[in-house]
Amino acid sequence: MAAGGDHGSPDSYRSPLASRYASPEMCFVFSDRYKFRTWRQLWLWLAEAEQTLGLPITDEQIQEMKSNLENIDFKMAAEEEKRLRHDVMAHVHTFGHCCPKAAGIIHLGATSCYVGDNTDLIILRNALDLLLPKLARVISRLADFAKERASLPTLGFTHFQPAQLTTVGKRCCLWIQDLCMDLQNLKRVRDDLRFRGVKGTTGTQASFLQLFEGDDHKVEQLDKMVTEKAGFKRAFIITGQTYTRKVDIEVLSVLASLGASVHKICTDIRLLANLKEMEEPFEKQQIGSSAMPYKRNPMRSERCCSLARHLMTLVMDPLQTASVQWFERTLDDSANRRICLAEAFLTADTILNTLQNISEGLVVYPKVIERRIRQELPFMATENIIMAMVKAGGSRQDCHEKIRVLSQQAASVVKQEGGDNDLIERIQVDAYFSPIHSQLDHLLDPSSFTGRASQQVQRFLEEEVYPLLKPYESVMKVKAELCL
C-alpha cells in the first residue's frame, strides 16, 4: 500500500493539533497551500530580480507567473513527485505547466533550498508574528487579574506546605514575570531571523556568478533584492546548502521555554482548584465526569500541561538535527523538520489560546482563602504575639514557653481530632496574655502579614508589564474561544 493518505478522510490519521486544537490561522501558515504558494512567490521574486539585473526574462513571463501564483494543481504535483521522487522539481514542473512561456526560467540558477529553506524562514517569521500578540493578550488578562487582587491576602506555599502570606495578585505576578520573559525572547528570536537568500547549491553562489558572467556586484544585488522582497532586513552571508540548523534550535528553545512557563502556571491553577481557592472557567453544560456528576475538573489547565510537556520535548529534535548536518548538509534534517517545526508552533498556539481562555474567566473564592488563612495564621502570628507581650512588660522566655504549650495543644486538636485551630481562643482565655487581649485582632490582621506584596504588584505592572504590552494595544480586544 502506498504511503500517505487522504487526510480529510475519517479513515486516515490526522494530527489532533490540526484537527482538534490549533487555530485556523496557525494551521494555514503550515498548510501545503501556504507552503507551495510561497515557493511560487519566491520563484517570481527571483525572476523579477534577475530581470532587473539584466537576464533575458520578459515582462510577459513575469506576468504569467504572477497570474498563476494561486493556480496550484495539487493532484498534478503529487503525481509528479511520485514520478520524480523530488518535491521541488515536482512543483517546478507543475508551475511550468500553467506558465508555459515562463517554464524555462522558473528556478533559474537556484537549488531546492532556495524555495525550501527560504519558505521555512518566512513561515517561522509569520508563525512567530501570530504567537506574539496571543502571548501579549494572556499577559494582559493576567495583569488585569493581578491588579484587581493585588491586596487580597492568601496563604503562600513553599514545598506545598503553608508559608508566609502573600497576595493573590502577587502570586499571579510570578506567572506574568515568566511570560514577559517569554514574550521578550519570542520577539528577540523573531527579529534575529535572517533570510537564507540566493546562495546556490553549497552556499557559494557559483551558479549565479556564472549567470551574471562573473559580476560579483550583481550577485550581491540579486541576494539583497530577493531578501528585501521577502520582507527581511538581512540575509546570511555564510550558508551551506541550507541555512544553519542552529536557527531551528533557537526558535524551538524559546517555544519550549514558553511551554515550561505555561505548565507551571496551569499546575498552580490545578492545585488551587483542589484547594477550592480558584477555578478555571466551567461552562453551564460542561460535564466533569461521566460517573461523578459533582466533579469540576480543571480540564483546560490539564490540557495545557499535557501539550506543554510535548512542546518542551520537541527542542531535542533540532538539537540532534543540527549535530548531524555533515559538511554542507545531509538530508537527516528533512523529514524531522517537516514534523517538529509545525508541531512546535501548533502546540504553542494551542496552549496560548487555551491559557487566554482560562485567564479571561478565572474565578476566585475569597471566603475559602480566608478560612485557610484562619487555619494557619495563628501559628504564624506567634512571633508577633511574643513581641507584643514583651512590649507590655512580659518575659520573652516565659511567653515563648506559654505559646509553645498552647500551640501544641491547638495542633493536637487540628491533627488528632480534625478540629479547627483554636490557638487564639486559648490565648484569649489565658490570664497571662490579658495585657494584649485587646491587640489580638490587630495582630491577626492578614494584611499585616503580606509585606509589600501589593506595592510590588503595582510597581511591576507599571514599570515592566504595561510598557512591554504597549506595541500590542491594537490587538488586545480579541477574545479566545474554545470549541473543545
Results as ranks from 00 to 15, higher is better:
K170L: 03
A348L: 05
Y21R: 08
S15R: 10
S448T: 11
G156T: 02
V168N: 07
N384F: 04
A3V: 14
I62F: 07
E80W: 11
E370C: 00
K402D: 15
P100R: 02
A256G: 09
E70W: 05
K170W: 09
D182P: 11
E50S: 07
Q241W: 00
S434W: 13
G4R: 08
E64S: 13
S412H: 14
T111W: 03
S23W: 08
R270K: 04
N357L: 07
K246E: 09
Q205E: 13
G361C: 13
K187W: 03
G419N: 01
R196E: 03
Q428M: 09
P298E: 01
E376A: 04
D120E: 02
K295Y: 07
L352Y: 07
Q184V: 09
F449T: 06
F449Y: 10
S67T: 00
L482K: 13
P366L: 13
G259C: 15
A78Q: 12
E70I: 10
L211Y: 11
Q285C: 03
K224G: 02
G156S: 08
L468Q: 09
L42F: 14
F449H: 07
R141H: 07
T94R: 02
Q205F: 02
Q51S: 04
L319W: 10
E401W: 13
E70A: 10
K170R: 10
L155C: 06
E228S: 11
D11M: 14
P471M: 02
A273R: 08
T354G: 13
K402E: 10
I57Q: 10
I238N: 04
K233I: 03
I176A: 08
T239R: 06
I57C: 10
Q325L: 06
V324C: 14
V189C: 10
L42C: 00
A260I: 08
D430L: 13
R149F: 06
R338D: 03
L152I: 03
V189F: 00
G214L: 02
E343K: 12
G419F: 15
N421Q: 08
M312P: 09
L131K: 08
A206R: 06
A411N: 15
Q408S: 04
L406E: 10
V262N: 05
K264V: 11
Q458C: 09
K415Y: 08
S253N: 12
A78S: 11
I427A: 15
L440E: 00
L179F: 13
F195H: 03
H159L: 06
G8P: 10
